[in-house]
Every structure is written in structure tokens, then in C-alpha cells.
């Protein structure tokens, strides 16, 4: 009797742990892993309606690093993940992504030709671009009387205590590198030291280094200048028309979030079906409208209202001059550790 009781308790415990592995439906389970709030809420339901034999298990992560931990430790059978460029490069490098059969993704034709064969996937074997954007300066027109044209304005004494920076080492060290005239992906000790010194010098002017709270602070007019991702900038401008967004003339970062199939996937065909569905023009349009970011899907962009699809900041012309200034983050393992240390020193200076 006692043994039975303890056995039951053991089983109950194991069941609790195994619960997220799913119940016992006959449908194929497709595990999709995406950043929070990064898909139109109806899209998953529409996919399941069109593919009655597939049940989508949709999970969300806070940061791509969290996603990386889960995929690299193969804790869950994810079939589709949507991380950013440098993380994709790292995952390709470490052999964590499956090659995609593009024959199964006819809607790949909708993807902007400028967004194919990018640095992180030069031969285009692993990724299907989803959203893209830039990093730039969000500023309050009523508080900033200079013209915002370059990164130097973030070092202007006039705006002391009125500047918000992202609490993201990669992005902030990149901004400082660009300000000093170097490549965002520089791994040169002297150049990194110069960027670090610039960030330390700037720290007395900075009100705070935050994440999502920057949006609230800028919308509420608590600061004049902030470094943000373009997608967040459009969101803030919609809420507060005093705000404007600028991509500094020295150049900036160009980022891409792409769909990919990790090696944890057990349903390659269904995963490709999902990616194809997400690349269909009407679905990509829904997502672009809901998220407010710039879609990598040209067919979907054509369906958007004129004032959005022709917005120079949201969809800058990807001509050679623009592209020569913009850089995509590259993955560099030894540099990652350096960045964390630099950032710790900056925050504690």
C-alpha cells in the first residue's frame, strides 16, 4: 500500500514535468518559437484552419539568448524559430539549423531580392526573412532644437540627463564604434577601447540604460533622445506625434529576423509549410500591420497603405549608398565575451 502511494506520487511528479510535452492528440504538433508579440494573433488559427491535420504549439521567448539555450540544449522539439541575424549565424556555425528545401516554399518568391543571400546566410540555405529594420535615434522635436543627423548628438552636454540608451551591449558598443568611425563589427582591441572610453564619457549624460521602458519614457516625454530599434520607433511615434526617428549619417545597424528550422525539429515538411504560409502576401501583410515593423516580403509591402509603404524611414531605399553605410551584426564568439566585460565596465564607471 505504502509503495503504491509513493509510486502514484512519483508518477504524478513525472506527469507534471512531462505535461508540456503535450497530450495525446492524433494531429501533428508543430512547435513554433517566436519573440513575444511578434505575430498577428489570428495567423496561427488561420494556419490550423487551412491545415486541419496540424496543431500549432506556439511559444514565446523574451530574448534570442533564451531561445538559443533551449534549442542548443534540445529541451523542446521546436520546428520553427524566428531569431535575429547574428544568432542565426551562430546557430548555422554550430550546426543547430536544418537546411530548408526552398522548393516547398513557393512563396519565397515574395521575399525582397535585397534581403536574400545576406551576410549571415550568404548562400541562402537556412533562413527565410521575416521582418527587418534599423537602429537609430528617437527624439522629441519639442525638446531637441539641433538637427539629429549623426550619433554625436548623444554626446552633446546640452542633453545631459535627457538621453536613454538601450541596455544591450552589442547594440551600444556598435553605436560607439560607429561614432568613432569604425565598423560595428570591429574586433580590434584599440578600436574597442576607444568605443569603451566614449561610452564611459557619455555615461554621465545618460538618464538610464533600459529595455522596453524606453518606449514608455519617450511617449510620456520624459527624455529628449533615445537609441531604439526602428520598429519600436514607429510604435512610439504613433502614440506621441512629437517624436521623430532618424538614422544617423555615419551609418547604423541593419537587422533581420528570419524564420528557420532548428535541428530539434521532427516535422520538417510541416515546418516548411508553416514558413510558406507566413510568407504568403496576405499573411505577411497582416503580420506587418499588426507588428508595425518593416516586412521583408515585397508582395506584402505592396498591399500596405501608401503612407506606410512609401515611408522613407520604415522602408528606406536599399540603394548602394545606403547599404554601404549599414552593417549587419556578425557573429564572433570571442568578441561576445569582450562585449559583456566592456559593458559591465561602462555601467560601473
Amino acid at each position: 500500500m505504502k509503495k503504491i502511494v509513493s509510486l502514484i506520487l512519483c508518477v504524478a511528479l513525472v506527469c507534471t514535468i512531462a505535461v508540456f510535452a503535450g497530450g495525446c492528440s492524433s494531429k501533428t504538433k508543430l512547435f513554433v518559437y517566436n519573440v513575444g508579440d511578434y505575430i498577428h494573433p489570428d495567423v496561427v488559427g488561420m494556419f490550423e484552419e487551412e491545415n486541419p491535420d496540424i496543431k500549432v504549439v506556439y511559444e514565446m521567448f523574451d530574448s534570442v539568448e533564451e531561445m538559443y539555450m533551449k534549442v542548443s540544449n534540445a529541451t523542446s522539439p521546436y520546428d520553427v524559430v524566428i531569431p535575429s541575424d547574428y544568432m542565426l549565424e551562430q546557430m548555422i556555425d554550430e550546426g543547430l539549423l536544418n537546411k530548408i528545401n526552398y522548393d516547398n516554399i513557393p512563396n519565397y518568391a515574395n521575399i525582397d531580392p535585397n534581403m536574400r543571400n545576406l551576410a549571415f546566410d550568404p548562400t541562402n540555405e537556412y533562413t527565410v526573412p521575416y521582418m527587418w529594420g534599423t537602429i537609430g535615434i528617437l527624439y522629441n522635436k519639442t525638446m531637441v532644437d539641433d538637427e539629429v543627423t549623426d550619433w554625436d548628438i548623444l554626446w552633446n552636454e546640452k542633453y545631459k540627463g535627457n538621453i536613454f540608451m538601450l541596455n544591450q551591449e552589442r547594440d551600444m558598443v556598435s553605436v560607439a564604434l560607429k561614432k568613432c568611425g569604425y565598423s560595428m563589427n570591429s574586433d580590434n582591441e584599440a578600436e574597442l577601447a576607444e568605443a569603451e572610453a566614449a561610452l564611459k564619457e557619455q555615461s554621465s549624460l545618460v538618464k538610464a540604460y533600459c529595455g522596453d521602458e524606453i518606449k514608455d519614457n519617450m511617449i510620456n516625454g520624459n527624455a529628449a533622445l533615445a537609441v531604439v530599434w526602428s520598429g519600436d520607433a514607429y510604435f512610439c511615434i504613433e502614440q506621441n506625434p512629437d517624436l521623430a526617428y532618424a538614422i544617423p549619417a555615419e551609418g547604423s545597424n541593419l537587422w533581420f529576423d528570419c524564420m528557420a528550422i532548428p535541428t530539434t525539429s521532427t516535422h520538417q515538411a510541416e515546418a516548411e509549410k508553416f514558413i510558406d504560409f507566413m510568407s504568403r502576401s496576405d499573411i505577411a501583410k497582416l503580420n506587418a500591420e499588426y507588428i508595425g515593423y518593416s516586412t521583408a516580403n515585397s508582395a506584402a509591402r505592396d498591399l500596405l497603405p501608401d503612407e506606410i509603404k512609401n515611408d522613407a524611414l520604415r522602408y528606406p531605399e536599399l540603394n548602394e549608398e545606403f547599404m554601404s553605410k549599414m552593417e549587419i551584426f556578425a557573429y564572433n564568439k570571442s568578441r561576445n565575451a569582450k562585449l559583456t566585460d566592456i559593458w559591465t565596465r561602462v555601467l560601473n564607471s
Binding site: E66, K333, S334, N336, A337, T340, W343, T344, N348
Partner: peptide
């Protein structure tokens, strides 16, 4: 993290930062 705006790093933040970076 929230109340200092990242300017005031405590040991918990330091651990979190290092763990989020696979090499840390």
C-alpha cells in the same frame, strides 16, 4: 535593473548578464 535604469549593476544583474551570453 528596472529602478536604476541599468546604471547600478548589482551582483544579480551581473550573473544574469553573464548567463545570457553563452560564453559568460
Amino acid at each position: 535593473d528596472f529602478f536604476s535604469g541599468g546604471q547600478f549593476m548589482l551582483i544579480g544583474n551581473l550573473i544574469e548578464k553573464n548567463f545570457k551570453n553563452p560564453v559568460g
